[in-house]
Computed example of a mutant assay.
Amino acid sequence: MLSYPIDLNGETFKDIIEKSPIPILIDFWAVWCGPCKSFAPIFTNAAKKFGKKVIFCKVNTDAEPTLASQYQIRSIPTLIAFKNGIETNRVSGALPPLQLEGLINSLLY
């Protein structure tokens, strides 16, 4: 579908999560976060590679503190995977490309 991550906010988050026919992977991040900055191109490259099978999204925790609180984001980056509107996996920390691909593959199979 998309070959790049889409930004979610409080208004779009629930709609995307509940209505997506394919898995979703969300990167909770912040502008000031060094690991988030280094992970961003890895996440974008994964979106290019897997964008037809998974929707890649980003939530800026500074801009969306309510979402960060609702999903109990305690450290960033944090990745949360959703399938059929339900959280299925959560990983904190910047992942190297192969580990991210492993997470994505676990969503698909």
Rank of each mutant, 00 (worst) to 15 (best):
T44G: 05
E11C: 05
T66C: 00
L107P: 07
G93R: 06
P41M: 10
Y71G: 06
E64F: 03
E11S: 14
K52C: 00
L2M: 11
Q72E: 14
T44Y: 13
P77L: 10
S3E: 08
N9K: 03
C57Y: 06
P35V: 15
L67F: 04
I6D: 02
Y71E: 02
V31T: 09
T78N: 02
I104D: 08
L95F: 14
I76Y: 01
F43K: 01
A46M: 06
Q99F: 10
L8S: 05
K49A: 04
L8C: 09
A94H: 03
I86F: 10
N9S: 13
K49M: 09
I80G: 04
I26D: 09
S92D: 03
F56Y: 06
E101Y: 15
P65K: 13
I73A: 04
L107T: 09
N45T: 14
I6M: 10
F39H: 02
M1Y: 15
V31R: 05
E18D: 12
I16C: 05
L25T: 04
K48L: 11
L2D: 07
E18R: 13
L2Y: 12
K58N: 09
P23L: 12
I80K: 06
V59L: 10
S69V: 01
Y4W: 13
L2H: 08
P5N: 12
M1Q: 07
M1R: 10
Q99R: 15
I24F: 04
A30Q: 13
K83Q: 13
V91A: 03
P97C: 02
P97E: 08
K52I: 01
F39Y: 10
G102Q: 12
P41I: 15
G85D: 03
L100A: 11
F28T: 01
P65F: 14
R90Q: 08
V59D: 09
I76L: 01
R90E: 05
K37G: 02
A94M: 10
N89G: 10
S92Q: 06
P97D: 00
Q70G: 00
T61G: 05
L8R: 02
E64T: 02
F39G: 03
I55R: 05
M1W: 14
P21E: 15
W29G: 02
C36H: 06
S38L: 10
E64G: 05
P96N: 14
C33F: 15
F13L: 03
I104G: 08
